[in-house]
């Protein structure tokens, strides 16, 4: 049980980056570039957020939370 909880804790940083930074990247891109295809950039922003979370998990970047 404890190990499962630990795994969940470790993956939470990925979820956090996906939602938190994905939303921020998305808003930043729309604010700065006003793209015509907003949907594409939204998908890309959340993908970058997710990848950022994976890097943070592997590198143990607790500072992002």
């Amino acid at each position: 049980m404890d190990e499962k909880l630990l795994k969940l804790e470790q993956w939470f940083i990925v979820l956090f980056a996906f939602v938190f930074f994905g939303s921020i990247f998305n808003a930043g891109v729309i604010y700065l570039f006003e793209p015509k295809n907003e949907f594409f950039f939204t998908i890309m922003s959340y993908l970058v957020g997710f990848l950022f979370g994976l890097v943070a998990k592997n590198k143990k970047w607790g500072w992002i939370v």
């Binding site: 979820l15 939602v19 939303s23 921020i24 604010y31």
Partner: peptide, 17 residues
Amino acid sequence: IVLMQMVTAFFFPLETL
């Protein structure tokens, strides 16, 4: 609290930042 930050960031991203 961190969950609240995530929800807030979803609705008000630049403001939360």
